[in-house]
């Protein structure tokens, strides 16, 4: 006998027969809405309400006066600051360069490591533990550690270079190197995140297809290129999307290593928002910048979802 697919299709129980059928029927039909209601309420309180407040702040002038925050509606006035803000375009450019570089490199390294570790066999747990370590260290500790390592006079990197007769550069003080120095730290820190996600994907792949390809005469490169990578595509896209969102919000590494300098050489959007919000106390304009950043990230998320949808169609 076929089982009912929903509660509404289930036959009424003996107990329920004594209750008004209409009320029960109503609850049965609308149960799915009641079930998600708590989540909707929590989401509204924790996400939508602050987002609405951010939007409200972005069209307001917010000042402390008379012991209180005074909100004055200014419409699109905060955009005039955007038009004359010479730091924002540089910060946006640096952020895009940073995001593209670190996401591509970290994904590539994460994928290589994931494939490699999946084939290691009995030493796999050791490798996993080693590769996961950077993500477990607090960002503040990482920033401090690398700041010391990059130090021109006392840092270990320049000391090692000196052993080979190479005069080390000023890693965080050279405008051509400052952003690259931060990227190196970010790649060291976050590759393990990509590695974890991609390793989970690699380990869930069915072995039969790659075995079949090998039996059919495919070499290892062909197995990876034509069998494993296409099957990994959805996982890679999700990993790319998550990492892109996080990379856009890079702050602690920049704050601790370069402060956005020298000049604006390593300035990024989140660092600029911090300065506007917490050092210049321009809450309205800061909110506008935060909103713009959220919009830019949303564009990337939509792009990844579109790529994912396209990939599914072709599979």
């Amino acid at each position: 006998m076929a089982r009912p697919s929903t509660l509404a299709e289930a036959p009424p129980s003996a107990g329920a027969a004594s209750k008004p059928a209409g009320v029960l029927d109503f609850f049965d039909r609308t149960f799915k809405y009641w079930a998600v209601l708590p989540t909707v309420i929590v989401l509204t309180l924790l996400t939508i309400q602050p987002a609405l407040q951010l939007i409200q702040m972005s069209v307001s002038d917010v000042q402390f006066s008379g012991g209180q925050l005074q909100w004055t509606f200014v419409g699109l006035d905060n955009f005039k600051y955007l038009a004359t803000d010479v730091v924002f375009p540089v910060a946006l450019r640096n952020t895009l360069i940073f995001v593209v570089c670190v996401v591509v490199i970290e994904t590539f390294l994460g994928l290589v490591l994931a494939f490699a570790v999946s084939r290691v066999g009995r030493f796999s747990p050791i490798y996993r533990a080693v590769f996961v370590t950077p993500i477990l260290i607090p960002a503040v500790a990482i920033g401090t550690m690398w700041r010391l390592m990059y130090d021109y006079n006392f840092g270990i990197i320049n000391q090692i270079l000196a052993l080979f007769g190479i005069a080390g550069p000023t890693w965080t003080g050279d405008p051509n190197l400052a952003l690259i120095s931060v990227m190196i730290v970010d790649i060291w820190h976050w590759t393990s995140f990509l590695f974890l996600i991609l390793l989970a994907g690699v380990e869930s792949l069915p072995h039969e297809l790659s075995e079949a390809a090998r039996v059919d005469g495919a070499n290892e490169w062909q197995v990876y290129r034509h069998v494993l990578l296409p099957m990994m595509r959805p996982t890679i896209i999700v990993a790319l999307m998550l990492r892109t969102i996080l990379a856009f919000k890079v702050f602690d590494e920049i704050f601790l290593l370069t402060g956005g300098g020298p000049g604006t050489a390593s300035q990024v959007i989140s660092m600029h928002i911090y300065t506007v919000f917490f050092e210049q106390f321009r809450l309205g304009y800061g909110a506008l910048l935060a909103l713009l950043m959220a919009l830019i990230i949303s564009v990337f998320v939509i792009f990844y979802q579109w790529v994912n949808a396209m990939a599914r169609k072709t599979m």
Binding site: Y152, N153, T170, T172, G173, D174, P175, A178, T258, G261, P262
Partner: peptide
């Protein structure tokens, strides 16, 4: 000044 002048 020292070489790393831009980040002191």
């Amino acid at each position: 000044g020292p070489t790393n002048l831009a980040d002191l």
